[in-house]
């Protein structure tokens, strides 16, 4: 792998890191398998792309993407809690609906941002070379988002959100409306994902309605890889957040390595990545059980 490929993978790890934080929040904290992210990532990209094209400051467009993503997640939460639709199905419904919404927002399936200002301009303006500015800025944003999430989960409301995923019966008996914690929690997760999508669009110079396909699987793979690296269930929320971000970077590095692979005549192409990612998730999800079986211990 070249130095630039390495830097690029680390940069992507941070850019998608915000999405991975969102997936951690739904999948691990709320125990809510949320496929909305496949739609909220391109939603954030579309909102940011349209806003940047309209001359709005690139940083301000992140706020708009955040709001749009929160609304999308909140809709999934409302479908699940207030209307009683199964969580997985609620998120699929929102995701499908977002496809139409995104095309409405952009007025077409994709939008290029070539030559338009990006969040990176503020850093390269300081004289830093582009290949160093990217990882620095996106790393700083990912760490800031991670730190904010750690803070949020330590507040009274955040602790109630943690309890909602762990023991909804108990936290209801203690006076928490779990509908609220689920709607806000899934909303926040998708807000983070949408900001991630906005950064991806600015970084790649384009937003595309199909750019979200497989987001949930990539997010899950990152969360699981991170847990394997840092240790699942050890330590508190802070450690889990570090694991999620580390997992995101490790996942993008693994993909960069896979793309360099050449076995005889066969070389891995970007279109093979979905298959590889799915296999990685299956392996990671079943490995603990397999190991327990092999060593004769019960899980």
């Amino acid at each position: 792998m070249t130095y630039y490929a390495l830097i690029g993978a680390v940069e992507q790890g941070f850019v998608y890191g915000l999405m991975v934080l969102g997936v951690y929040l739904t999948f691990r904290v709320l125990d809510f398998p949320d496929l909305t992210v496949d739609g909220s990532l391109p939603l954030g990209a579309a909102v940011s792309a349209v806003a940047v094209s309209a001359g709005i400051d690139p940083y301000l467009t992140l706020v708009l993407a955040f709001a749009a993503g929160f609304a999308a997640g909140a809709i999934t939460g409302v479908l699940n809690t207030k209307l009683g639709i199964l969580h997985l199905l609620s998120s699929i419904l929102t995701m499908i609906a977002l496809y139409s919404v995104i095309i409405r927002i952009m007025g077409r399936p994709n939008l290029t941002l070539l030559g338009k200002p990006t969040v990176l301009d503020a850093v390269t303006g300081l004289g830093l070379p582009a290949h160093a500015a990217g990882p620095l800025l996106y790393g700083a944003l990912a760490v800031a988002a991670g730190g904010t999430l750690v803070w949020f989960l330590s507040t009274q409301f955040g602790q109630a959100t943690l309890a909602t995923g762990d023991n909804p019966r108990m936290i209801t008996a203690l006076g928490v409306n779990t509908h609220t914690t689920i709607i806000v929690g899934v909303g926040l997760a998708n807000a983070l994902t949408a900001v991630s999508g906005a950064l991806v669009a600015q970084n790649q110079g384009a937003a595309d309605v199909n750019m979200g396909v497989g987001t949930i699987v990539a997010g899950l793979a990152s969360v699981i890889i991170g847990e394997t690296l840092v240790g699942r269930g050890k330590g508190g929320v802070g450690r889990a957040i570090v694991a999620a971000l580390a997992g995101s970077v490790a996942y993008r590095l693994a993909i960069a390595v896979a793309l360099d692979l050449r076995i005889g005549q066969l070389s891995v192409t970007p279109s093979d990545l979905n298959l590889i990612t799915a296999l990685v998730v299956v392996l990671a999800l079943t490995a603990p059980k397999m190991r327990a079986k092999l060593t004769g211990r019960r899980c």
Binding site: S154, T155, Q156, Q159, A163, D166, I171, L174, G175
Partner: peptide, 24 residues
């Protein structure tokens, strides 16, 4: 809550029926 500490569980109970905001 199994995944929370003893003090976190007690803190959840100390707010039974009360508004939960963004303080610690």
């Amino acid at each position: 809550c199994a995944s929370l500490s003893i003090e976190q569980n007690l803190a959840l109970a100390a707010l039974r029926g009360k508004r939960r905001g963004l303080s610690r």
